[in-house]
Amino acid sequence: MRGQYINIILKLRYHQLVRLLNNLGRLRSFLFLLFLLIPIVIQPGLLYELPILVIPILHYSRKDNRFLQLIGIKPFFIFSIEYLVICIPGLVAGLLTGTWWAIVLIPGAFITAFLPSNFKINSNRSLLFSHYNPLPITAYEWRSVFRRTKYFYYFLYLILLIAAILYPNTLPISLVIVGYFQVSFYDKCESYQFLEAFQRGPDRFLWYKIGHGLFYYSISMIPYMAIYFLEPAFPLYVPLIIYAGGLLWVVNCVVTKYMLYMEGKDLKYSYAYIMLIVLFSFVFPIIPVLTASWFYWRARNRLKYYLYAFD
């Protein structure tokens, strides 16, 4: 029976991948696969480093936990199988190159499969600071994420801040992790009435959202930058480059969201877009600038269908 489950799930995943590539079209599929392979060819270690990043992202964004329980399949079993399959190229590459620590991917896959796949709250009756919220209503994405993840984001932010104070060497990692969470602020599409409430055309709307995103990101970075200046553990340019990278990251998050905008939908693919941009930027640092411009143009064209106001 378990063998049949494995067979059917892997067949399903294979069909999904083939259809996704068909949807992209031949040229975009080719470019997608090329951009995936080039960094791996240049730096083969990515094969066993990528699953460490990709698997938690996939796990955190899953929504099929209840569905699997409803049809009588244990989610842990399916998640483990899928994550182990993702780890296979990394395991093989690690064993062939003698990078024995790659074996840690196996227990990592099982542990991740065991963790809760979301941090959503069941009710709004225990909001932290529910009667006091310093964020204005126009920052509804941020309010929504803080409430959705209950205490997790505050907890994570505090832990990373404490880590940065006690161990200044962790500062760049902390900045990357906090920056990563910016993606989760832009993965749900509001109703078009929300967009219309801004009473702006596509260009002004996008610049408004980008400006907001950059402002709140910068505010959240202030404590970290303050720690750096008080206890410099790196040359000046390191945290500044990471901060600037984060700004580009936020811009890409915003324009990707509105490029893919569909009223009321969860944007499952926005994570994939953003992580690919980050990945490629290690090889071609100009990529985030190019994607921000291209996606901005596509987001503007998409929003024209939804916004009645003109610039």
Partner: peptide, 20 residues
Amino acid sequence: ESYFYPMITGREYLELICMN
């Protein structure tokens, strides 16, 4: 509200359930 995996057909959805 029901959940459906993206990029699958109705038949594949039912075949997954019919495992049981």
